[in-house]
Design a protein around this nucleic acid. Structure first.
Lengths: 246, 246
DNA sequence: GGCGAGTAGTTGTCTGACAATTGACATTAC
DNA sequence: GTAATGTCAATTGTCAGACAACTACTCGCC
């Protein structure tokens, strides 16, 4: 939790303090003036300004010379669409949907060639493979398959702490340290197995996510396939205009 | 183009200069020391540091006390997935796919109730509605329907400049000024009309985007439905871990 | 009532300094 | 010989104080 605190401790602490100030200031309101804030946070104005520049870059505040600094709240932070890495469980919780995990199918076996390729493993490495159906309102709504290198996640850890989401398990364990996930999106027709698992017709349309979860060291620590029945979840992206190539 | 140049002219110029320095420094190499760079760019070290903080926030550079500042290149900038607002035409061009617009169906008619709702129009406003098939490799691969308020885009502008993308038409005209687009993603089964247009079976799985395009003043200036045949385009999102709620 | 000068307050920038950290090299102890 | 230790220059991190540029507001003048 606080393992990286001493490296840039002052910067780090200032960043958090300032973030808190911004969070607790209502949208559109003015922040205290820089000299005031600097005194209050116990840093010099130059240091404060650097920290503020961070939040300005992120679009959380806007500075106007001669007037002051104002809190703005960018749409996509509130929106919290696909660009935020979040488990389906916590997504469901946010939109008020009760979800439960169906029966978990657990495999511990050697990686196939494709899996070894994707997960950057040597040929004879072993993987843990977790398949389960997600149910909501007493009906199957999604089908997940996660494949994780066995050296990243132990069998015991799964038995002890797995409650439906590999992502949340990783976050609880604090290991591996994650950065982001690359998620490919497509539509597919349900094949026989998935149709049976989700209790739908073969050929019905499903939304499929193919995700690679990356750790700080660049490893792929989870390869997952997610199949969603249309209508139960809403996924969206905020797409920003690219102004860099002028 | 250069309409906002005098407001923060120094900051602005410094930002560009520094960006250029970073761009032209190879990945992993060290930048000149701060005092050197400041002299070279003609600003004080404090100002330079603020500008550097911007790029540090964006993950383009990494500073290490006692060592120096190094250029890193974040993967997701190169990736350029869904989070960048881009027309399908330019996406196709980037991945080396030749696309052509099929027959354009053009309507200029009063808005339906739903459309008026979505586009925030009064009841009797009129809209322009553009439907067309996109073909690649001599086969239909996508079907687009755009609905635009008539006061945003004139019939003449469409006849003169429309080449398949409303987004690019807006960018060419310079009006309205766009910010971003909210795009909802789902999988659907093709209905009769779309199946016929795309030359597929009714019930085949399609990827559907429902997009609202926003202008700077908050108006919705385009409401679009996009249907994609699986396999021709690759859409992905990079999902970042949310570290703000600690 | 309208208008212009003045003024207080705010962010933008500069200067010069010192602290903290790092990496390289020389030195010493064994 | 080798490993630990000390020294030093270079670099980023932080600080204090000052002035410039800009903005919104007030107040007197017409």
């Amino acid at each position: 939790m606080a393992e990286l605190s001493n490296h840039h401790s002052l910067s780090q602490r200032l960043h958090e303090s300032l973030h808190k100030v911004i969070r607790t200031t209502e949208t559109g309101a003015r922040l205290p003036s820089e000299p005031n804030l600097a005194r209050r946070l116990g840093v010099s104005r130059a240091t404060l300004r650097e920290a503020m520049r961070t939040f300005e870059t992120q679009g959380l505040i806007q500075r106007r010379q001669g007037v002051g600094t104002f809190v703005v709240r960018p749409a996509h932070v509130i929106e919290s669409g696909l660009e935020v890495l979040e488990s389906v469980e916590s997504l469901a919780k946010r939109i008020g949907l009760q979800v439960a995990m169906g029966e978990l199918k657990f495999e511990h076996r050697p990686a196939t060639k494709d899996e070894a390729d994707i997960l950057q493993l040597s040929a004879n490495a072993s993987v843990i493979c977790l398949s389960r159906v997600i149910r909501a309102e007493d009906r199957p709504v999604a089908y997940f398959v996660d494949t994780v290198p066995a050296n990243v996640l132990s069998e015991e850890a799964v038995r002890a702490g797995f409650r439906g989401s590999v992502l949340e398990l990783f976050l609880e364990l604090g290991e591996p340290r994650l950065v982001n996930s690359r998620c490919e999106i497509s539509a597919v027709a349900a094949d026989r197995d998935i149709a049976r698992a989700l209790n739908i017709q073969r050929g019905d349309a499903l939304l499929r996510f193919i995700s690679h979860l990356y750790a700080v060291d660049g490893r792929v620590v989870d390869y997952s396939l997610s199949y969603f029945l249309p209508g139960y979840f809403s996924f969206h992206v905020v797409r920003e205009l690219d102004l860099s190539n002028k």
